[in-house]
Design a protein around this nucleic acid. Sequence first.
DNA 1: TAAATGGTTGACGTATACGTCAATGTGTGG
DNA 2: CCACACATTGACGTATACGTCAACCATTTA
Lengths: 135, 135
Amino acid sequence: MPNSEKSLYSIAELAREFAISTRTIRFYEAKGLIAPNRVGGTRVFSRRDRARLMLILRGKRLGFSLREISDYLGLYDADPAQKSQVELLHNLVSQRLDKLEQQQRDLTTTIRELREIRQQAEDQLADARKPARSA
Amino acid sequence: MPNSEKSLYSIAELAREFAISTRTIRFYEAKGLIAPNRVGGTRVFSRRDRARLMLILRGKRLGFSLREISDYLGLYDADPAQKSQVELLHNLVSQRLDKLEQQQRDLTTTIRELREIRQQAEDQLADARKPARSA
DNA sequence: TAAATGGTTGACGTATACGTCAATGTGTGG
DNA sequence: CCACACATTGACGTATACGTCAACCATTTA
């Protein structure tokens, strides 16, 4: 059962699927974020390449630079034999988690504030329809 | 009791407090994100200016562009008399909330994955010290 | 009075993240 | 055979977000 899902993609297919340009995908490759196989000169993307691309785009939605995303992808790749490598990985992951947790706090605060503003706007619209009830 | 807290700041004070450059603060002013008073030519920042700067920096930590942050600050400023303005504000706030909530989902997933990776690293470090217990 | 301190406005430089050609190659259908 | 779709690299252009001078003005302290 060799997995019924499609497992190879052209650059144009991926670009369409994720609503980005082919130029963008080539740029990510030039920056070392993905490394698709080649058939002749033509890039051929595997499911793993596609998964990496999804990680990249999620990183972008979170506001990270390509450099940061590159480091981040390294965290997924690592399969270290050396203890020192495991420790290094652990440190890197922990640092990244600290940043993400700070971001989550910022995000929670911001969402709370905007919900408050939205609520006030809704109250005002309700008052406009039924202006009584002051005291 | 005119509020014991400091209420006026120089550009250098704010730069130091938030670990950014004075150039950055001037740049934000040039982009219309803050509008400090002037005494002669010199900028004098109020507590409100400082609060806005904090909002800007939080927006940056969340990965937003200055343009997006500018729009976002407008949401805080609005105090609309017109019903249509209230509706517009409500729409803008709702749109922004959609983006932030998507970001929060991305963030939650990413944090979960990194915690998993960190856990695996910790397990490996534990195994290295006490390698038995395979089945 | 001279120098240090802190402020100002240009103007130019730079890294990032692509967009936009141009020139070229490759395979497939009519 | 030839057009057309789809791919390639290379080069140049562009918006954003500042950094980095230069040249200048105003206080204040030695």
